[in-house]
Design a protein around this nucleic acid. Sequence first.
DNA 1: TTGTAGGCGTTATCAA
DNA 2: TTGATAACGCCTACAA
Lengths: 347, 347
Amino acid sequence: MKQRRVTIKQVAEEAGVSITTVSHVLNNVPGLRVNPVTRQRIQDVSARLGYVPNGLAQSLRTRRSNTIGLIGDEIVTTPFAGKLVLGAQEVALTRDTVMFVVSTGYQRDVENREIEELLRRQVDGILYASMFHRELELPSQLASVPTVFLNAQCTTPGVPWVAPDEAAGGHDAADTLIAAGHRRLGFINNIDDIPASAGRLEGFRARMFEAGLSARDLAVVAVESDAAGGYAAAMRLLAGPDRPTGVFCFNDRIAMGAYRAAAELRLRIPQDVSIVGFDNQEYVADGLYPGLTTIELPHYDMGVWAAQKLFKKINGTIGDTPTALLRGPVIHRSSVAPPSDAAPAAH
Amino acid sequence: MKQRRVTIKQVAEEAGVSITTVSHVLNNVPGLRVNPVTRQRIQDVSARLGYVPNGLAQSLRTRRSNTIGLIGDEIVTTPFAGKLVLGAQEVALTRDTVMFVVSTGYQRDVENREIEELLRRQVDGILYASMFHRELELPSQLASVPTVFLNAQCTTPGVPWVAPDEAAGGHDAADTLIAAGHRRLGFINNIDDIPASAGRLEGFRARMFEAGLSARDLAVVAVESDAAGGYAAAMRLLAGPDRPTGVFCFNDRIAMGAYRAAAELRLRIPQDVSIVGFDNQEYVADGLYPGLTTIELPHYDMGVWAAQKLFKKINGTIGDTPTALLRGPVIHRSSVAPPSDAAPAAH
DNA sequence: TTGTAGGCGTTATCAA
DNA sequence: TTGATAACGCCTACAA
């Protein structure tokens, strides 16, 4: 924004018409007939001069900035954020709008500051994202701007939100194990009290019951959700004689630890134990050997959903307050197989 | 940007002064004395009404949008991008500016489109980022906007850029192995012809020569840079009797494969083989067991550097065309130890 | 110490 | 079919 760019006025002069006419043809004002030769001349001149309309002036006049803000806690720092942002960005581009992205680092004052910067720039709407699925309330400054929550449930009424369907994820995890023939199962859960841990467990159990299994067929242990936690938990889970033949890990990092435990216990995956992870984390799920079968979080889809709803809200073409729990696909790799006969017999 | 927000005019009326005065006190115009009581009244009214200046109008008038664009190939999709963006964002916020971030997905037409959207919005400058270190030329549309390259060397003169110091990285990798006492080394390199592979090898060799080692003391093998490639390469490298006691992997994913190979070969890490990775990739370097000693890429620092230079360029307070190769720290974990006596004797 | 007025680059209303 | 002209909300000489 340093040296002056060419303005509509220059185009008008060069083409020998008024700026009104230039504006008309360049914006393709509907139901307005312009002499074809004039129109052509204007377009030529505009192209020759490399005219690009000043969006700030346009926005000032039209009260629409074609700009949205994406604000998140760690939105930009974490490997998971990518797809979320990408999904939103792609639908935004479709609407000729571009996205400010800012991350707060979980600091309230930074968040306030950033929200103000966004509002000052007259964003048409805001996507308020969380790095992990949780419940959040609407920051008060956002009350007057179209907002939708991304990867978080909004406790304030009237705000659309999307989050992963954790129960479905747990259900699908159980399903892939059960479908392979497993009947003695394990679940290494996260220790935190968040929707993901409760939801996945619930969904997992539900699928077990559908299969006629009982609560006694599932061993649950909760740990810190990293590789070390997964290792410790799996050592406990897989050491006994009645060990589960299929274990579901809260996330791929836990699964990574479980792989190590299995190796130490001389248990082959998937012949001796089947493992299902969660997240389909790039470079870990596919880097493990054998490849980890895992449930993917619908980050991209959530980004798309949220952005679409946001535009509807901006355009006022939204009735109620939509809300969605999205299911992610299960990514089949090689860590699940039928239980071997050599495994300890059922109790 | 839907319902009208409060304007400076309303504040002025409410406070019983002219908009000029409001503007003056709110902008703290230097060297301008305003009656303290008037000033206070204005500030009170402004706060009470929740006045936020319209940035579009300000920018239109001041020819400065306080906005920059970050455009990258996969900048937003990849786990590596995060810190890059974060570093840039943090210095931006320091300047009261906020960042548009867009990613092109390596598609030329998308890139053109996005650049135009950014220019139309009068960004003050642009950060042009690459996901991996490489040489790039300046897109012609960017010729007239302050631009700096991020994680890429710019072949067009006059454009500042930052990239990782690959040679230093290779040097440091060799150093941590050599310092531990290793003298028979291996390097599992990437197969692509990019600055990283050439630079790291060069730096590695340089450090070896400093230590009095010769080219014969290094076994190099190049593979696809993923876990599978690393596995295959390590199997080859570590199978022979004269195997290296310390191996440097082009990245952490390759190291992940090397870990598996070592395990299969019944080689303990670090007692039998020491491993050094590259990237310090979140959740893999620290998820591996034992923890992987690795070289971190200076993503955050590059983001900071680039943004700082960009602002200098925007403000015209830059002389020549700065350029930098930044070195990342080595992250010591547990995969490096002195070679054991039990290892095969030197040739 | 405070106010008037012009202009930033557009779009939109209304005439011509 | 085209053109004046008034906003949009703010900043900033210049005047009072």
